[in-house]
């Protein structure tokens, strides 16, 4: 069985010469099925870069990024797009949904793009929406949904069909605490059901829902040099279940 996400020696450098910026410096990170990993760190520490590289939105300067067994660091844009359709789902802070598509169509989007027949895609999307408790909102447009509902639809889309890895970038950032808690609880539940999750957050309270937390600073995993996946922080798992 392939590991959902395995990053090894990932570096990312932007610019050249005097403008050179090292966003990531030799990151090793593995996220297994049923595991939710939180990534914390100050602004500019490389959290979003890590997420973008993990999801194939960006390519690393060096290192490997295996998603469900495929090294997307060595693949072209078209193949990375295919990986995003089948293996990876993103959840952002806000404006996650395509406004011109209904909730159901938003969830079915990666399946339809991958060539699944509309009826089958719709069936899978309904199942995913049912799992997040929003089947009744299937035909509503995003503008008719609350912020929390939109994030739940985004989580459903991130894990629709064969997708088993969700990359969440501050998914609670635009929500009040009650709604935010509900979204994190849902994410946790989806991971417990077999998915894998990488959660970028500023909020330790939400990080506590993760199986372990990785702290980034200046592109490095804090507490470990290049090549570290924060294994030394595995003890942070003791925070697990603090609220659970």
């Amino acid at each position: 069985m392939n590991v959902p996400l395995e990053m090894k020696g990932v570096t990312q450098v932007h610019g050249r010469g005097a403008n050179e910026v090292h966003a990531l410096r030799g990151i090793d990170l593995t996220v297994r099925e049923g595991e939710l990993v939180a990534v914390m760190g100050p602004s500019g520490s490389g959290k979003s870069s890590l997420l973008n590289v993990a999801g194939g939105l960006d390519t690393p300067t060096s290192g490997s990024v295996h998603v469900a067994g495929t090294d997307i660091a060595r693949r072209g844009a078209r193949e990375r797009a295919a990986v995003r359709r089948r293996d990876v789902g993103f959840v952002f802070q806000d404006l996650n949904l395509v406004p011109a598509l209904t909730a159901l169509e938003n969830v079915a989007l990666p399946l339809e793009l991958d060539g699944m027949r509309p009826g089958a895609a719709r069936g899978d999307a309904e199942a995913a929406l049912a799992e997040v408790g929003l089947l009744e909102a299937a035909d509503r447009f995003p503008e008719d949904l609350s912020g929390g509902q939109q994030q739940r639809v985004a989580i459903a889309r991130a894990l629709v069909g064969p997708r088993r890895l969700v990359l969440a970038d501050e998914p609670t950032g635009a929500l009040d605490s009650v709604t935010g808690d509900a979204v994190i609880r849902l994410l946790r539940a989806r991971v417990d059901a077999g998915a894998a999750g990488l959660l970028v957050t500023h909020d330790a309270r939400y990080a506590a829902w993760a199986d372990r937390t990785v702290h980034l600073r200046d592109g490095l995993v804090e507490g470990g040099g290049p090549g570290s996946d924060g294994a030394g922080l595995d003890e942070s798992g003791e925070l697990q279940g603090a609220d659970a």
Partner: peptide, 16 residues
């Protein structure tokens, strides 16, 4: 622009 970027995030290649 953002809608198109979201499509790309969900696996829409450039031709789409």
């Amino acid at each position: 622009t953002r809608s198109l970027a979201l499509l790309a995030v969900n696996g829409a290649p450039a031709p789409t």
